[in-house]
Design a protein around this nucleic acid. Sequence first.
DNA 1: ATTGACCTTAACGTTGCGTAAAGGTGTATC
DNA 2: GATACACCTTTACGCAACGTTAAGGTCAAT
Lengths: 254, 254
Amino acid sequence: MEYTIQKLASLAGVSTRTLRYYDEIGILKPARINSSGYRIYGQEEVNTLQQILFYRELGVGLDSIKDIVTAPSFDGAKALREHREKLLEKREQLDLLISNVDKTIALTEGRITMSDKEKFEGFKKKMVEDNEKKYGKEIREKYGKEKVEASNAKVMNMTQEQYEEVTALAEQIHNTLAEAFKTGDPASELAQKAADLHKQWLTYYWKDYSKEAHAGLAQMYVDDERFTAYYDKEQPGTAVFLRDAIHIYTGKKI
Amino acid sequence: MEYTIQKLASLAGVSTRTLRYYDEIGILKPARINSSGYRIYGQEEVNTLQQILFYRELGVGLDSIKDIVTAPSFDGAKALREHREKLLEKREQLDLLISNVDKTIALTEGRITMSDKEKFEGFKKKMVEDNEKKYGKEIREKYGKEKVEASNAKVMNMTQEQYEEVTALAEQIHNTLAEAFKTGDPASELAQKAADLHKQWLTYYWKDYSKEAHAGLAQMYVDDERFTAYYDKEQPGTAVFLRDAIHIYTGKKI
DNA sequence: ATTGACCTTAACGTTGCGTAAAGGTGTATC
DNA sequence: GATACACCTTTACGCAACGTTAAGGTCAAT
């Protein structure tokens, strides 16, 4: 089956301009040019176009797509993994932004005040990247990324019941921690209960529990901005508070 | 507090070019220009910039933002709550995109390591269409999307060899189970062999094996009619039989 | 008086096309 | 054979939201 430019365009749901552009940038050349100079596309081009549109749908840039579709032995997976990393970063950005919006809402309601610096935390991608460069690697080396990855694997090993238990536990921790935070004392009964719940919660993710690892994780909550953002979402300072409570609970310091 | 252009830029995490551009298009004028022609920004501009960046993050065009920030009567808190909703939506979309990319990585890696292209096509079709379109959404809701994603992540790491092993194993389970079912005794040697094979098969999908989780999954086969339908396809009662065999095998009951 | 870190405007480059403009081709119909 | 009309072609400017030189003025310190 051969297609003129418009046939292919309507088949694929793109404009003829797009196809000419793809020709221009060398991403999709027609199979041949007929005697009148018309672009004629064949089956192979249809397949390639499908590939292109697929990657485009994923948000991959056309020059990256070019590498994928032109180089026969190109590691598409690698490109996708890189793309994935970008998406994950973007999502972290979003999470920070959301917490910033929450704060700002609180601000307009007069509950808290924000410094100029804090106002922009959600946008400070650079800071996040710097922080990642500065601490990220170190943290991963220190506490081991195996643990992080193993915990992911453990999650899928859970039954539905276990899954429900663990989510219930997470909520319980959240509530207890919020209450404990009001006391301001990480050695308080409530805070220690939160630490204990946190230990129980951990056992759902870790195969073996040790006080050192628990204390280490607590420190990570403070060192790693992403964790901090999560715990501090509703009450800034919660991450530090939780760390202190856990350090008291475990009797270990990092 | 007064800021020069670079001070404000680094505070907000944008470039000076951006601030000049915003000045140029009339979206953010400096509070004043000093005697040397320098742009000087004040507190009000900090707040306005924050607003601008919020909306920008949402993908709103700058000309629309202009209307928003220059409009005299403007319910800030209400707008922020709407912001928040949109941000959450955006994160949902991002999550979807990420999981799509994950899947595509799985498929791409499969294509590289798998010699048989057709098998790959079948695999792709099964994974993407069956798993996602049929079960994806519902299962995600029921058992938690983390688990589904973790499972996808594991599948995407399989090599061709592993894929062949796991498909061979699946067939072996199927045959053994069919044979065992005829005995009618889930404690029989054959049934226990099927359970053992099922355990081995599971290790291809789960990083850690536990008897509890195995037993839990077996129960899930009975509880979830989609799994039941799959196992009972040729012999009604097979799902229950398999569950019983696994419960005997693991010595656990759910 | 000379760095060097600031600031200024001006203007072209980028991505992935949309949108003319100006013209050639193919086929049907009058 | 003229005309109409739907195709096709290349060329080229426009868009958003800045990035990136380039060419030059300003400020504080040495």
